[in-house]
């Protein structure tokens, strides 16, 4: 992390206020303002590419470069387990264990 502790607190407070405002807005504004079909679809679809991008960034990003290290091995194990419909904690722990083993050998 590149931020100072106070910088991190600022991020936490601003993001929390912003996300709370997003939640409250849905309760406060008239429903017909948000009924547009494209708006609805955008909000439902948005998490999908963002989560996919987070997978890539967390597994393959180095310092301004794509890198292949033990994290990729962990991700490969996670892909298999997700396809097998394993529970959340199993997927996460197995990925961590696979990466730890790859680093140890």
């Amino acid at each position: 992390m590149d931020l100072s502790p106070s910088g991190a607190w600022l991020v936490i407070v601003v993001a929390s206020l912003g996300c709370y405002a997003l939640k409250l807005a849905g309760w406060a504004v008239p429903a017909r303002w948000l009924e547009g079909e494209r708006l609805q679809r955008a909000a439902v679809l948005l998490p999908i590419p963002l989560l996919a991008a987070l997978v890539v960034v967390q597994a393959f990003a180095g310092d301004r470069a794509l890198v292949l290290d033990a994290r990729a091995g962990g991700l490969a194990v996670a892909v298999v387990l997700v396809l097998l419909r394993a529970p959340f904690l199993v997927v996460v722990l197995a990925a961590a264990a696979a990466a730890a083993v790859l680093r140890a050998v």
Binding site: V55, R71, V91, A95, A96
Partner: peptide, 15 residues
């Protein structure tokens, strides 16, 4: 401990 590999796995499971 491989905890850095746990994070992309968590995102994948959510996805």
């Amino acid at each position: 401990l491989g905890l850095d590999a746990a994070v992309p796995a968590a995102f994948l499971a959510l996805l």
